[in-house]
């Protein structure tokens, strides 16, 4: 059997005296596009932070590319939910994306022509070429998210972790960000945390429902109508969006 890209076993994370994750066992394989859904506080971000090595689990083990979390940083790309940065920070889109090459550089090694070429490619992929010289503080929510995705892509990750990349983005931009991710499917392993259960169910290969414990659903590339509602044990639209989940299409 193939070695999983991410292997979590018996994961338990206790934060502030509360179990945020419990008994979580999850294997992610090469080429997977996993959607992680679940209510707020269900532990989605916590799981990503554990995989990134930013948070140490209370119990259980995590292996990322067979190593402890944080050890294979050059192979993992990360798109945070929101970037808390100073809007006045003097840096342009190009400079922000270039920082994504940091994981490929040693100490004292300077950014070179190769890094600039990768930046050009990532800007092209994310459609940011025309605004590459714009200050990061002047970007819209959608542009900033694309820039963060570009920053993650520029390091040539084999595993891409995205934490609600569409949380602060208007509907039009959401679709284009999902289209962008769909284009990446197959090129790398993707774990996507999202509230957009409708959008997710149509695009991912597997859905993980996280509410402290995990329910994994891998019936192929689509979910039968109503699956998400069943998993949540209450109507999915009550979680965040005041709109019903569109029926999941089958066979695409």
């Amino acid at each position: 059997m193939k070695e999983p890209v991410v292997a979590c076993e018996g994961l338990r994370v206790r934060l502030g005296g509360v179990d945020v994750l419990r008994g979580l066992t999850l294997s992610v394989f090469e080429g997977d596009f996993i959607g992680i859904v679940g209510p707020n506080g269900g532990g989605k971000t916590t799981l990503l932070r554990c995989i990134l090595g930013l948070l140490r689990p209370t119990e259980g083990t995590i292996r990322v590319f067979g190593d402890p979390p944080g050890a294979s940083f050059g192979r993992v790309g990360y798109v945070p939910q929101r970037l808390f940065f100073d809007r006045d920070f003097p840096i342009d889109v190009e400079g922000l994306v270039l920082m994504g090459r940091l994981s490929r550089k040693r100490l004292l090694q300077r950014y070179g022509r190769d890094d600039r070429r990768k930046v050009d490619m990532a800007l092209e992929t994310t459609g940011l070429g025309p605004i590459r010289r714009r200050q990061v503080g002047a970007l819209s929510g959608g542009e900033l998210q694309r820039a963060l995705i570009a920053r993650a892509l520029v390091g040539d990750p084999e595993l891409l972790l995205l934490d609600e990349p569409t949380a602060s983005v208007d509907p039009d931009m959401k679709t284009s960000i999902y289209d962008l991710l769909e284009g990446l499917r197959g090129r790398m392993t993707i774990m996507l945390v999202s509230h957009d259960t409708g959008a997710i169910s149509r695009r991912v290969t597997r859905v993980a429902c996280l509410n402290c414990t995990l329910d994994m659903h891998e019936e192929g590339s689509s979910l039968p109508h109503g699956t998400l509602d069943d998993l949540y044990r209450y109507p999915v639209d009550a979680i965040r969006h005041n709109q019903p989940v569109p029926p999941a299409r089958t066979g695409d």
């Binding site: 090595g53 930013l54 050059g74 990360y78 945070p80 920082m99 994504g100 940091l102 994981s103 920053r151």
Partner: peptide, 8 residues
């Protein structure tokens, strides 16, 4: 945080 994730 991103610096940490990048191995810095």
């Amino acid at each position: 945080e991103y610096a940490s994730v990048s191995g810095v």
